[in-house]
Every structure is written in C-alpha cells, then in structure tokens.
C-alpha cells in the first residue's frame, strides 16, 4: 500500500541506474591504446556528457517539486529516480575521469559532486529512519498536544508546589520557569538542555533533563513532616517525572524534525556549488586544451 520511495514502481529506478552504470563500465573498458583511460577519449567525453546531464537533471528535482500542477510523473517517482541516479553519478563520473585526481579545478568539481551525493545520502538516511521514530515518539499525538500536556503539568506543578515547604516550592516553581526548550540551531539538533532551577537563596543551578528537581523532591519525601505533605510530595514527584518524560519527547521531536530539515541547507547550496564547479570544469577543459 505504501511502497516507499526506494521501492517505487518495483525498484524501477534502481534497475535503470544499475543498467546505466554497467553500460558506463562497459564503455570504459573499450578504451584501448597506449594511454590509460581518461576523459579525453571519445568514451571519456561520452561518459562526461552523461554525468553532466545527469547532474543537471538531478538539480531539476528542486523545480519539479514546486511545479504543483505538473502532470510530468509524480514527485515520488522523481525522488526515487533522483536517489538512484544520484548515487550512479559517482561511478560514472569516476569512469569519466579514469580516477585521475590532482589539485585542480577538475578534482574540485568532482569533490563537490561527491559532497552533494554524500549529503543526499545522509538526507536519505534521515528520511528513512526519522519519520517512524518521530511517530513512535509522539505516540499518535502531535507536537502541539505535547506542549498542551506540558502546560497542564506546569500549571498543576505550580499549584502542588505551593502546598509544599518553601524550599521545594521555590525549587519546583523555578524549575518550571527556567525550563528551556529548543534554542539555537545546534541546541535544537543536539537537544541541548540548558534548564536551570533555584536550589535555594538567590542562586541558579543546572537542571538538565529535570533530574536535579526530581532528586530534590525525592530527597525531601522521606523527611516529610505530615502525612498530607508526604502525599503532596509523592504527587509532585510523579508530576515532575511526567514533566521529564514529556520534555524528553518534545526535545526529541524538535531534534528529529530539525535533522529532517537541516540537511537540505547543506545539500542545496552544495548542489549549486557543484553545478558551478561543473561549468568551470567544462570551460577550462575546452579553453586550456
């Protein structure tokens, strides 16, 4: 029912790019003569042209994706072809240059192309693994539902903390107020938690993963004076633990969604760089022949 992007149309584009690569390898082996195989034989030019056209076509996905009324295949089909042909462009380009690498613009173009493909493979990995993990992490809810739950826990936490001793109350309430979620790009991608709380006095102490506040409430529990206080503290402990669980989910959600998006910020600029490299490579080849 949901074949996924790799299995699209019974692996159609895996077969297509496999055949194309084999054809390229065959063509490569036909290069004879005294020189080792290189880009300046007719086979080399053919392979180079194929690789260059493939790179251009691969970049066109960005345009096709935005042609929403287009009847030219489905975006899924294009993406499937993009993945397989994108991987195939590395062996074909390598066959084109005969694995001759030097410190020059040609190798630079080649490296940029490889960087694009590698960033794409990274993206593929993220696309294949994170959606399922995201879905599991959200347990059928949505991020806004998680935030709603957090707000509810915050409110109840404050009410409950109010009934406890001043030290616990200040710690829990400050812990709620100084909880941080998200932040900069790195903080989101690495799920860095800079939450703090007030352990007493006018100080601030780290409360990463809410553990410090949990420990504080737990430590207070055996010292409870009245049975009502013990009951409140138990409820509070349960609540701060639930906050920890919800916060972990939210951070994980932000983190994975971040990775799902961020890789394109590498892949797309690298694509433009590789296309520029390709143009420079072609121009220099013909100008300085």
């Amino acid at each position: 029912m949901f074949p996924g992007v790799l299995r699209f149309a019974q692996w159609r584009y895996l077969w297509a790019s496999g055949v194309l690569t084999l054809f390229a390898a065959g063509l490569y082996t036909t290069q004879g003569g005294t020189h080792p195989p290189r880009g300046d034989t007719w086979q080399g030019y053919t392979l180079g042209t194929v690789a260059a056209l493939m790179m251009l076509w691969l970049a066109l996905l960005g345009i096709r994706k935005r042609r929403y009324a287009s009847a030219l295949g489905s975006v899924q089909g294009w993406t499937s072809a993009h993945i397989y042909l994108g991987v195939a462009v590395i062996p074909i380009a390598t066959l084109h240059c005969g694995a001759h690498f030097h410190w020059n613009v040609h190798t630079l173009a080649y490296s940029l192309m490889c960087a694009v493909v590698i960033s794409g493979l990274f993206g593929l990995l993220v696309y294949l693994s994170y959606p399922r993990q995201l879905s599991v992490n959200r347990e059928g809810g949505s991020r806004s539902a998680l935030f709603a739950e957090l707000l509810d826990l915050d409110r109840r936490g404050r009410d409950l903390a109010q009934r406890c001793d001043p030290g616990t109350a200040i710690a829990v309430k400050s812990g709620i107020e100084r909880t941080t979620i998200g932040g900069g790009v790195l903080a989101q991608l690495l799920a860095i938690d800079r939450s703090e709380y007030n352990p007493g006095g006018d100080t601030s102490s780290t409360n990463s993963d809410q553990q410090a506040v949990i420990d504080l409430v737990a430590a207070r529990l055996p010292r409870a004076g009245r049975s009502a206080e013990a009951a409140d503290l138990q409820n509070l402990l349960l609540l701060v633990c639930r906050r920890q669980a919800v916060l972990r989910r939210i951070r994980r959600d932000i983190q994975m969604q971040g990775w799902l998006r961020i890789w394109l910020y590498g892949h797309v600029p690298l694509t433009f760089a590789a296309l520029v490299g390709l143009i420079v490579h072609i121009l220099t080849t013909f100008l300085y022949w």
Partner: peptide, 17 residues
Amino acid sequence: VKHGPACVKACPTGAAI
C-alpha cells in the same frame, strides 16, 4: 485533473495516498 490529486502527486516519499 487527469493525473490525480495534487496532494498525493506532490508527496516526495509516497506517504500520502
């Protein structure tokens, strides 16, 4: 639209049907 609903056609991973 001959080629079907845009939402499905535009899904890059085939998640929408």
